[in-house]
Protein backbone atom coordinates (compact mmCIF):
# COMPACT_ATOMS: atom_id res chain seq x y z
CA UNK A 1 0.00 0.00 0.00
CA UNK A 2 1.42 3.40 -0.88
CA UNK A 3 0.23 6.80 0.19
CA UNK A 4 1.52 10.31 0.83
CA UNK A 5 2.23 12.01 4.14
CA UNK A 6 2.99 15.72 4.34
CA UNK A 7 5.55 16.56 7.01
CA UNK A 8 6.16 20.11 8.33
CA UNK A 9 9.73 21.17 7.66
CA UNK A 10 12.30 22.96 9.77
CA UNK A 11 14.14 26.02 8.51
CA UNK A 12 17.89 26.10 9.00
CA UNK A 13 19.86 29.35 8.89
CA UNK A 14 23.50 28.80 8.06
CA UNK A 15 26.50 30.70 6.75
CA UNK A 16 28.69 29.35 3.98
CA UNK A 17 32.15 29.80 5.36
CA UNK A 18 34.78 27.25 4.36
CA UNK A 19 32.75 24.93 6.59
CA UNK A 20 28.96 25.25 6.83
CA UNK A 21 28.07 26.82 10.15
CA UNK A 22 24.48 26.43 11.30
CA UNK A 23 23.29 29.48 13.19
CA UNK A 24 19.85 28.28 14.20
CA UNK A 25 16.97 26.00 13.27
CA UNK A 26 13.30 26.46 13.91
CA UNK A 27 10.13 24.60 12.95
CA UNK A 28 7.65 26.06 10.51
CA UNK A 29 4.96 24.52 12.68
CA UNK A 30 5.14 23.56 16.36
CA UNK A 31 3.88 20.01 16.66
CA UNK A 32 2.75 18.40 19.87
CA UNK A 33 4.95 15.68 21.30
CA UNK A 34 3.84 12.12 21.71
CA UNK A 35 5.15 8.71 22.71
CA UNK A 36 5.40 5.76 20.36
CA UNK A 37 5.20 2.48 22.26
CA UNK A 38 4.38 1.32 25.77
CA UNK A 39 5.35 3.78 28.57
CA UNK A 40 7.52 1.22 30.37
CA UNK A 41 9.10 -0.43 27.34
CA UNK A 42 11.36 0.64 24.52
CA UNK A 43 9.75 3.44 22.60
CA UNK A 44 10.50 6.87 21.27
CA UNK A 45 9.46 10.45 21.90
CA UNK A 46 8.10 11.79 18.62
CA UNK A 47 6.19 14.67 17.14
CA UNK A 48 2.52 13.87 16.60
CA UNK A 49 1.10 14.15 13.12
CA UNK A 50 -2.23 12.98 11.75
CA UNK A 51 -2.63 12.10 8.12
CA UNK A 52 -5.44 11.24 5.76
CA UNK A 53 -3.04 8.94 3.90
CA UNK A 54 -3.91 10.29 0.47
CA UNK A 55 -3.10 7.83 -2.27
CA UNK A 56 -3.40 10.33 -5.09
CA UNK A 57 -1.04 13.25 -5.41
CA UNK A 58 -3.83 15.47 -6.71
CA UNK A 59 -5.71 15.05 -3.42
CA UNK A 60 -2.91 16.64 -1.41
CA UNK A 61 -4.04 20.06 -0.21
CA UNK A 62 -1.93 20.98 2.81
CA UNK A 63 1.53 21.22 1.19
CA UNK A 64 2.67 24.75 2.01
CA UNK A 65 5.61 24.57 4.40
CA UNK A 66 5.53 20.79 4.25
CA UNK A 67 7.51 18.11 2.47
CA UNK A 68 5.56 15.37 0.72
CA UNK A 69 6.77 11.93 1.76
CA UNK A 70 5.85 8.95 -0.48
CA UNK A 71 5.32 6.09 1.92
CA UNK A 72 5.21 2.47 0.86
CA UNK A 73 3.93 -0.04 3.36
CA UNK A 74 4.69 -3.68 2.50
CA UNK A 75 3.13 -6.62 4.28
CA UNK A 76 5.61 -9.50 4.01
CA UNK A 77 3.43 -11.89 6.01
CA UNK A 78 0.26 -13.86 5.40
CA UNK A 79 -1.59 -12.11 8.19
CA UNK A 80 -3.64 -8.93 7.88
CA UNK A 81 -1.78 -5.77 8.82
CA UNK A 82 -3.83 -3.46 11.00
CA UNK A 83 -1.99 -0.44 12.29
CA UNK A 84 -2.87 2.57 14.38
CA UNK A 85 0.44 4.43 14.38
CA UNK A 86 3.51 4.63 12.17
CA UNK A 87 6.84 6.01 13.26
CA UNK A 88 8.60 7.93 10.49
CA UNK A 89 12.34 8.39 10.93
CA UNK A 90 12.55 11.86 9.44
CA UNK A 91 16.22 12.10 10.42
CA UNK A 92 16.93 9.71 7.53
CA UNK A 93 15.04 11.81 4.97
CA UNK A 94 16.49 14.19 2.41
CA UNK A 95 14.51 17.18 1.15
CA UNK A 96 14.10 17.92 -2.56
CA UNK A 97 12.36 20.76 -4.35
CA UNK A 98 10.61 20.67 -7.72
CA UNK A 99 10.32 23.52 -10.17
CA UNK A 100 6.87 24.47 -8.88
CA UNK A 101 8.28 24.99 -5.39
CA UNK A 102 6.91 21.82 -3.83
CA UNK A 103 9.08 20.04 -1.33
CA UNK A 104 9.53 16.27 -1.40
CA UNK A 105 11.39 13.72 0.66
CA UNK A 106 12.96 10.53 -0.58
CA UNK A 107 10.72 7.50 -0.64
CA UNK A 108 10.26 5.68 2.64
CA UNK A 109 9.52 1.94 2.55
CA UNK A 110 8.33 0.05 5.65
CA UNK A 111 8.36 -3.74 5.49
CA UNK A 112 6.06 -5.48 8.00
CA UNK A 113 7.43 -8.86 9.05
CA UNK A 114 5.03 -9.75 11.86
CA UNK A 115 3.95 -8.26 15.16
CA UNK A 116 6.86 -9.79 17.10
CA UNK A 117 9.61 -8.54 14.81
CA UNK A 118 10.84 -5.06 13.96
CA UNK A 119 9.91 -3.73 10.55
CA UNK A 120 12.50 -3.13 7.87
CA UNK A 121 13.18 0.47 6.90
CA UNK A 122 14.42 1.47 3.47
CA UNK A 123 14.96 4.99 2.22
CA UNK A 124 15.38 5.97 -1.42
CA UNK A 125 18.76 7.34 -2.37
CA UNK A 126 17.43 9.87 -4.86
CA UNK A 127 14.37 12.05 -5.34
CA UNK A 128 11.11 10.08 -5.49
CA UNK A 129 9.57 8.85 -8.70
CA UNK A 130 6.78 11.45 -8.42
CA UNK A 131 9.40 14.24 -8.47
CA UNK A 132 12.22 12.92 -10.64
CA UNK A 133 13.52 16.36 -11.62
CA UNK A 134 13.56 17.71 -8.08
CA UNK A 135 16.78 19.30 -6.83
CA UNK A 136 18.33 18.30 -3.54
CA UNK A 137 17.81 20.97 -0.85
CA UNK A 138 19.25 19.23 2.19
CA UNK A 139 20.85 15.94 3.09
CA UNK A 140 19.39 13.75 5.86
CA UNK A 141 20.49 14.54 9.39
CA UNK A 142 21.61 10.94 9.69
CA UNK A 143 22.54 8.95 6.63
CA UNK A 144 20.41 5.80 6.39
CA UNK A 145 22.29 2.53 6.36
CA UNK A 146 21.18 -0.66 4.68
CA UNK A 147 19.44 -3.28 6.77
CA UNK A 148 17.74 -0.81 9.10
CA UNK A 149 15.05 -2.31 11.29
CA UNK A 150 12.99 -0.75 14.03
CA UNK A 151 9.64 -0.96 15.77
CA UNK A 152 7.80 1.55 13.62
CA UNK A 153 4.38 -0.03 13.20
CA UNK A 154 1.99 -0.06 16.14
CA UNK A 155 -1.19 -2.07 15.78
CA UNK A 156 -2.73 -0.40 18.82
CA UNK A 157 -2.24 2.74 20.82
CA UNK A 158 -1.54 2.27 24.52
CA UNK A 159 -4.53 3.24 26.65
CA UNK A 160 -4.27 3.61 30.40
CA UNK A 161 -7.55 3.74 32.24
CA UNK A 162 -6.09 5.49 35.25
Amino acid sequence: MSFFVTIPVWVRVQVDLPNHVTLCEFPTRVLSKTWFGHPSEDGEICYALTTRARQEQAELTDVVGRAICPLLLENNTHEALAFAQLLLSVRHMSVYQTGDGRLWTNECRLGYTGSFYPASLTFGRTSPEQAKDAQLVSEPREAPTSGLTARVIANAIFKQQF
Binding site: V30, S32, K33, W35, A48, Q85, F158, K159, F162
Partner: peptide, 16 residues
Protein backbone atom coordinates in the same frame (compact mmCIF):
# COMPACT_ATOMS: atom_id res chain seq x y z
CA UNK B 1 -3.75 20.46 27.38
CA UNK B 2 -4.14 20.12 23.61
CA UNK B 3 -2.74 23.61 23.12
CA UNK B 4 0.39 22.80 25.13
CA UNK B 5 2.86 21.04 22.79
CA UNK B 6 4.84 19.56 25.68
CA UNK B 7 1.84 17.44 26.73
CA UNK B 8 1.92 14.17 24.83
CA UNK B 9 -0.91 13.20 22.50
CA UNK B 10 -0.26 9.57 23.36
CA UNK B 11 -0.71 8.16 25.93
CA UNK B 12 -3.87 10.17 25.94
CA UNK B 13 -4.33 12.81 28.67
CA UNK B 14 -6.83 11.81 31.34
CA UNK B 15 -9.35 14.19 32.86
CA UNK B 16 -11.45 12.94 35.73
Amino acid sequence: VVANPSCFNEPEPLIF
